[in-house]
């Protein structure tokens, strides 16, 4: 597992005339952790869905280590080395925790036994090993979030897309997840792009932050720069400070 460079060039997407994302460009260097933030409805998840192949962008292109992945089907994007989690978690409910992650691991390990073995290792890292025989539907929300991450990691990605995996976690749980992701990134060099509302996590993890509002990129920089950026304060942090 090593990281890949993500390059997004001028992507745009409209839904029935409604412009969800317009001319967004940014890059995540191999092995870096970047965050994508913005108010609700800003188009963050649409950008994720374009990277993951759920939608083909109307304009622009997305490349992973120089290979264009935009327009590929989600399973092909996965094969190219992108793992993703869903904002609204999508566990395979009637399967056990172990089987959930095993399905992800089958992507690189054709034999069920090998895949299971690999899945057990990932579950141990995420602290879910003791719950491996539980049905996924019986997990609490924080554990389901962890399961999302585990299943995505099982596909052995070079780029991990995390869509609000901290949401709903208690501060101590956020710290555990942050610690895990930082360690994972440090050990394997996996590139990570996260959508996050939990600023505590963004500040602790991201080397750079991309801010989107109404489908457009309005700022980009280190967390420190972003927190002083006037346009950002106006549309995003300003709102939160006022709340």
């Amino acid at each position: 597992m090593t990281g890949a460079r993500l390059e997004i060039a001028g992507i745009g997407k409209s839904f029935r005339g409604l412009r969800a994302v317009h001319d967004v460009s940014f890059a995540v260097p191999a092995g870096a952790i970047h965050a994508l933030i913005g108010p609700n409805g800003a188009g963050k998840t649409t950008i994720f869905n374009m990277i993951a192949g759920v939608y083909a962008p109307d304009t622009g292109s997305i490349a992973l280590d120089g290979h264009v992945i935009s327009g590929l089907r989600p399973d092909r994007v996965c094969a190219a080395g992108v793992g993703r989690t869903f904002q609204i978690v999508k566990p395979f409910k009637a399967l056990s925790v172990l089987e959930n992650v095993t399905v992800g691991a089958l992507h690189r390990h054709r034999e069920l036994g090998d895949a299971r073995h690999s899945a057990e290792g990932i579950l141990a890292q995420l602290g879910l090993y003791d719950r491996r025989h539980q049905l996924a539907e019986s997990l609490t929300l924080p554990d389901r979030k962890r399961l999302e991450v585990a299943r995505a990691l099982a596909t052995e990605p070079k780029l991990l897309l995390l869509d609000e995996v901290m949401a709903g976690l208690r501060p101590t749980e956020v710290d555990v997840m942050v610690g895990f992701l930082r360690e994972l990134n440090g050990k394997t060099g996996l590139t990570i792009l996260l959508i996050e509302h939990v600023m505590r996590a963004v500040m602790a993890l991201a080397a750079e932050v991309v801010v989107v509002s109404y489908g457009e990129k309005i700022a980009e920089g280190t967390p420190a720069e972003i927190s002083r950026h006037q346009a950002v304060l106006d549309v995003y942090l300003g709102e939160e400070n006022a709340a």
């Binding site: 993951a52 759920v54 999508k90 399905v103």
Partner: peptide, 17 residues
């Protein structure tokens, strides 16, 4: 296993390849 994954959630299945 892939069949079961599709039964449970086709979108999530496709996301894991």
């Amino acid at each position: 296993r892939y069949w079961l994954a599709i039964r449970e959630d086709a979108e999530a299945a496709q996301a894991v390849g």
